[in-house]
Structure formats: C-alpha cells, structure tokens
C-alpha cells in the first residue's frame, strides 16, 4: 500500500497500535513500522505530535513512566478512543467493500 494512503489513516493506525494495551511513544513507532511493513512514508518523530493531538482530543491518555531511568510517556486508549477505533474499522470495512465491488465489477452490497 502506498505510504501517502497510509498517512491518511494515521489516527486509526495509532489507535489500533494501542488497542492491545499501553505503550510508550517509541513502542508505538515500532508497532506502526511492523504493521505497515515499513511503508509508512513519514518521519517517525512526527508520530509524537500526532499522539499528543489524539490525547488532546481525549482519545488516548498519557502518563509519564521511567522504568529504566529514561523518562517515557505511556499512552493507552480511553473509552472514547475505543469507540473511535470501532468507528474507523466500520468505516474502513464499508470503504473496502464498496471499492472492491466497484473495481471488480460486482453489484454494490446493500447497506443498512
């Protein structure tokens, strides 16, 4: 998948990396690298402001931690973040189903 297209779904990807549990910023970057196969075409440092933006929106919660002496901010999903992730998934499935049907010349599936 093209990196530019992935960037358009960055919020959903970040929320998904936090679904299994709390992670600090660099662990989020690593998880993101892993799930996208390294094809996310953006400076990984810009993930931090994106995390802060999600925190500001109340979708994730951040707390400071220093397990090995180095201060790290750990993030976890809030209930609103879980709801947003579910919405992102539902929207993505609808998009994929619709575009797949159109590209493969099948009738569009009924909605609702």
């Amino acid at each position: 998948m093209r990196g530019e297209a992935l960037k358009g779904h960055l919020d959903g990807l970040l929320l998904a990396t936090l679904e299994p549990g709390a992670r600090h910023g660099y662990a989020v970057i690593e998880a993101l690298r892993e799930v996208t196969g390294g094809s996310l075409d953006l400076p990984t440092g810009t993930v931090y402001p994106a995390l802060r933006r999600l925190e500001q929106a109340g979708l994730i919660r951040g707390t400071w931690d220093a397990p090995s002496g180095r201060r790290r901010r750990c993030y976890e999903l809030t209930p609103a973040g879980h709801r947003r992730l579910a919405e992102e998934r539902a929207g993505w499935r609808t998009f994929v189903t619709t575009v797949s049907a159109a590209l493969e010349g099948r009738p569009w599936p009924a909605t609702g």
Binding site: P43, T44, G45, T46, Y48, P49, A50, R52, R53, Q56
Partner: peptide, 18 residues
C-alpha cells in the same frame, strides 16, 4: 533521516498544538 530533522518534528508539534 528516519526520525526526521528536529525542525520538522518541532513544526509538527506546533501544527498540532492547541
């Protein structure tokens, strides 16, 4: 190169700032 230059990251913080 992978992480991004300091100014790129700082600008991204400013862009996402309240």
């Amino acid at each position: 190169a992978e992480f991004g230059d300091a100014d790129v990251v700082a600008d991204a913080f400013l862009a996402a700032s309240p």
